[in-house]
Write a protein that binds this DNA or RNA. Structure first.
Lengths: 116, 116
DNA sequence: GCACATTGCGCAATAA
DNA sequence: GTTATTGCGCAATGTG
């Protein structure tokens, strides 16, 4: 659109009724602009805060995963150690522990082995 | 600061040397303003993207925690079931399993029990 | 046809 | 001295 630089002469009841209605409209728009810009800055700040929140949650979750993984590793080792030393040769409650514990089977459904 | 609205008359070599140097300066500043605003918008977009990345990582980590917790729960149950049925009454490789497995001991240092 | 909201843009102040 | 950033007003445009 052509950036028309103010029409000094009043052609009539167009965009520039010299000072009365025009000024009022300009002032109201200037206020609206300020409101809009304040809101915009708030949103930006909130987004930045959100990033920090998420980073923190993330760190906590990573620690949790680390801890759980360590714990799990320990139990599996203990388990296998016992199983390989036991009389029944790596069978434990009918479960093939070597196979069961070898991988980290994140996808696996353990409910098959679950007791009631 | 007083928002001086252009000095039409040239008082001398001040801020408004009527058109030559002034116009050049204005044009260069206008370009700088555009660059600055583009950069600003990019940053905003990047921050929004960052939020999404973090949300995704978060979801993945939460799933991982869930899976690991489930797996751990299963192993502990299996472990305890065996221990309580075994002849040595809840002793397993010299470790008090009941005590060891009762909690989720996130803080605990398992290295004490670690084999070489 | 309004009225407010959002946006691109230029100006001037001022930070760097 | 220069560019970068920022507050501000204007006008166009979007939205309802």
């Amino acid at each position: 659109m052509p950036r028309q630089g103010r029409t000094p002469k009043k052609d009539g009841p167009e965009s520039g009724e010299d000072s009365d209605e025009y000024r009022k409209r300009r002032d109201r728009n200037n206020l609206a602009v300020k409101r809009s810009r304040v809101k915009s800055k708030q949103k930006t700040q909130e987004t930045l805060s959100r990033v920090n929140e998420l980073k923190n949650e993330n760190t906590i979750l990573e620690e949790k995963v680390k801890t759980l993984t360590k714990e799990l590793g320990f139990l599996k080792e203990l388990f296998l150690a016992h199983a390989s030393n036991s009389a029944d040769k790596s069978k434990f409650e009918g479960v093939d522990l070597q196979k069961l514990l070898q991988d980290n089977s994140s996808e696996e459904d353990f409910s098959l082995y679950k007791r009631e």
